[in-house]
Amino acid sequence: MYKYIIRRILVFIPMMIILSMIIFGLAKAAPGDPFTGRILDPTVNPEVFEQQREALGLNDPIPIQYVNWASRIISGDFGESMYYKGRSVASLIWERMPNTLYLGLFALFITLIVAIPIGIYSARNPYSMFDYGATTFGFFGLAVPNFFFGLIAIYLFAIKLGWFPSQGTITGTEITGLNEFFDRLHHMVLPGITLGLAGTASYMRYMRSEVLDVLSSDYIRTAKAKGMSDRNVLYKHTLRNAMIPIITLMGFEFGALLSGAIITEQVFSYPGLGTLFINSITNRDYPIIMAIALLLGVTILIGNLLADIFYSIVDPRIRYD
């Protein structure tokens, strides 16, 4: 097991190097640079930007820029943002990460507690009214775009009903302690549901079909024939087997949550990594683009690794050596 994990981690390294080269190449291949988008003020002399380009090394050949960047990364320095003057990339990411992490976990939590019970219930009572209702909801959830659902949610629950705040992560600076926790939670409800919606729908569908699949398999029939109670059949045999694909999905989910967060965070003015990422792409803030892309890569790889490890826990047939 440990050997396996170490091997997997060692495989990460060449993957990250290749990944970083691809991203760096892509980012640099995109036309424009941090200064082209903002030179539209006639009182600012473009020579100023030329000097700044030179100072930032943007005029060097791209391979040299890559080597410079990579050698700094190896020594643990993610560099300075080109857009947020005087801010280090690490501090910017560090500042936003908790917001995205909380939001992602919250959305995942909502997804799981809603999707799994509904999925199981639907599978046990297939073609019932409830099942049809859940299916309809499932297709609705998959079909409605994130931003649209977000706007509707804001209009209904924040502006018309006033139940939830529509923007930001916290009401004000005066709120502290336990109140702060609840205030943040309160702010997370709408974006969390919005972000979790598509996930909920797809998990529900997966859960339903997996459970249905397992329920019709021979060993379940055997278990039932032995006189095992429905309850035991469900928890001991059905669920454990049905969970395997769900765990694979969750390995990818972190990446999916982050990409979904890009839109959701915009709609709810929720300052997380998604907003930072998208702004950095428009501003051609290369150091930040690279750092977040790497972070995303690492997260997905780790998510996969975790999924594999959980496999062996859930499914005793799977053993790594």
Binding site: M15, I263, I281, L296, I300
Partner: peptide, 19 residues
């Protein structure tokens, strides 16, 4: 994993282009 990573990045770039 590599494919998925590139997919999300691509998605990010595309979103950036339209939003």
């Amino acid at each position: 994993s590599l494919l998925v990573i590139s997919f999300f990045l691509l998605l990010g770039v595309m979103l950036a282009a339209c939003g």
